[in-house]
Design a protein around this nucleic acid. Structure first.
Lengths: 364, 364
DNA sequence: AATTATTTGTGCGTATGTATC
DNA sequence: AGATACATACGCACAAATAAT
């Protein structure tokens, strides 16, 4: 047993002892520790050895020394890194839609707690996502908030996420989480949201209810699932033809590349459509209007998120609200709590809320 | 002259010599440097002193040591920027208005160049501004982009700005610059913008042209100045009563705290109003509409920025466009250029452009 | 205001251990 | 096996900063 200890250099043992004792004796930052000579006597080593141990601890931030006064316990905040704590935040988009509000909520909490926020944006592409993550890791951040990129698809950047987890850097996902990772998250209950949306239409008497969902996003799948559940509960057959799927690139370029014929069919067959989000609803609204049909008289629309867009057009959108700023605040608070070693809820689901406006109407 | 040198400890002198020599002899990472004994003989110091110098340099990344082999020049890439370069960006607001677009433009350039972006938000208050700046400085960033807080008022945080300048951290302002600092900036030519706005109304035949401007913002002053110039040029007397001023807090809370009577007078006296920005124009529009007057039939409005808000209401705003994303890109590019030691333009003025929509009409 | 004790900072000499070639 | 180079460790001396007397 002596061997194991004696394999370690004496200064190493001393270092460990000092760190341990700081913890045990509950020394606060600024408290004085023993002088070099005291330690040397106590451990029966030379002062040189003590100095080696102490100077290394000092350069690591555990201690600081003042000439002529003594050696003191370092500022605990500075122990891990001299620098201010920084949180990496990555979302799929930055300036659009609900994202500014989410980021605002995060910033409110982080800046109040004295954290810096490093912002990255994946533009919902895996290569950009990878770049951001690499930046985060290199920047030596203290926590991460991520909105996953194409969360319903296999992710090529899981190695980086695992690296973050292995480094014990607290990480929260928002909106969804890669199913391969078991990570804390704050999400809106999208299944419920989908259910609420469809249920609202059913309650209004609609029976032929179509849906447009995003296929590369886990939120799209969940909202679809809720929609499906509501229809099933109401014993309405879900016809595959009534559901259209699109993906990120469709949306960004000119949206709804999917067969125009299919869309025409959809509007003919259905009296109501559940739209993946407000953006989609607006585009659908424009197309329908161009066909000479009216909303909500001819077709009812329900969308998701309650973004600024929802109230922009003449017909305000009935939409299932996303908590936006509140979600930002909650995820930031949870993350800080985790960083400070607190035991909070790991998986948080926020309740969606239906906001009824002008885009839905009773089916006569 | 010997004194100065001898005040420094020997190991310090040695450290400097070693760093210098690496540069002079163009030693590449991986090259071996002299052994501890060689250095000790060469400088006539003890080997212990050499070790002190070398071990510090090693912990700083300049050198690395291999037991039994020797001491080697460290990886140069790791030397200067082991950590990724980070740019601090502070704006007055985050989620509103044109700011998401500006930030997007900055992010596009920075992330492509491999920089991280640390985002801060002053909410246009000096205390928040101070917090952000302190964070930036502590975070050891490589460059700063700032939209000044209450740029027309004396600033209590100039000490921090000066600290940044003294540290030779490249800094660009956007939208305006504190007059006490001589800093690089990228701005919209707000005087010209103000001129264009008023000129447009004059060209439409308006003679009684009011204005609403922001008093704590330098942009407000410049836009007013342009407005003034246009009126003067057209030999229209500028009546003080036709100009209203508001400040940040007015806007944030319930806007236009200024005497309602004055505002009523303004709408009676004028056939057109130049509004500080789209937000103000929308509020003014609402008030005017409540009075039963119509835009642009009864009163013409010109605003600034061409934000998303400009096209939200039924009557789309005639507005002098802010380049938004482009401004973000330009300031980010300029900053990176400066960081890399390039000689670019320091003071950049971007041209505003009038976008004519539905809120202005010929004066009959 | 000067002195003294304490504490860290700098520096030298020496000895032994261990990794590499 | 031996030479070389770094790693650990001890002891000593003096300088410089600090605090208390």
């Amino acid at each position: 047993m002596d061997k194991k200890e004696s394999q370690k250099p004496k200064y190493q043992i001393l270092k460990e002892y000092i760190i341990e004792t700081i913890g045990l004796e509950k020394l606060e930052p600024g408290d004085k520790i023993w002088s070099e000579n005291e330690l040397a006597q106590k451990f029966k080593v030379s002062r040189h050895t003590v100095r080696q141990a102490i100077s290394q601890l000092a350069s690591e931030g555990w201690l600081y020394k003042v000439h002529g006064k003594g050696t003191f316990v370092g500022d605990r905040i500075r122990r891990k890194s001299n620098k201010i704590k920084t949180i990496g935040v990555m979302t799929t988009y930055l300036n659009d839609y609900i994202f500014p509000s989410i980021i605002l909520g995060i910033d409110e909490v982080l800046s109040k707690a004295g954290y810096n926020m490093v912002l990255g944006c994946s533009y919902n592409h895996h290569d950009k996502e990878r770049m951001c993550l690499e930046n985060f890791i290199r920047a030596d951040i203290h926590g991460v908030i991520v909105e996953p990129t194409k969360s319903a698809l296999p992710n090529p950047n899981l190695d980086l996420y695992r690296q973050i987890i292995e480094k014990d850097i607290p990480m929260f996902f928002i909106h969804g989480c890669y199913k391969e990772l078991d990570c804390p998250y704050v999400v809106v209950d999208d299944i419920k949201a989908g259910y609420i949306a469809a249920r609202h239409l059913i309650d209004l008497g609609h029976k032929r209810i179509g849906g447009i969902f995003k296929i590369d996003d886990i939120q799209g799948h969940y909202r679809f699932k809720g929609y499906q559940m509501a229809l099933h509960e109401a014993k309405i057959d879900l016809k595959d033809l009534n559901v259209l799927w699109f993906d990120t690139d469709d949306k960004r370029e000119e949206f709804i590349k999917f067969d125009k014929k299919m869309f025409r069919e959809l509007t003919k067959r259905c009296s109501a459509i559940v739209c993946y989000n407000d953006q989609v609803a607006l585009k659908v609204m424009n197309i329908i209007r161009k066909k000479g049909m009216k909303i909500p008289e001819d077709i009812s629309l329900v969308s998701f998120d309650d973004s600024q867009l929802a109230v922009v057009s003449e017909v305000k959108l009935t939409t299932v609200a996303h908590p936006q700023k509140k979600l930002g605040r909650i995820v930031a608070e949870s993350l800080i709590n985790k960083i400070n070693g607190g035991k909070g809820k790991d998986k948080i689901k926020m309740e969606p809320e239906l906001i009824i406006r002008g885009s839905t109407k009773e089916y006569k």
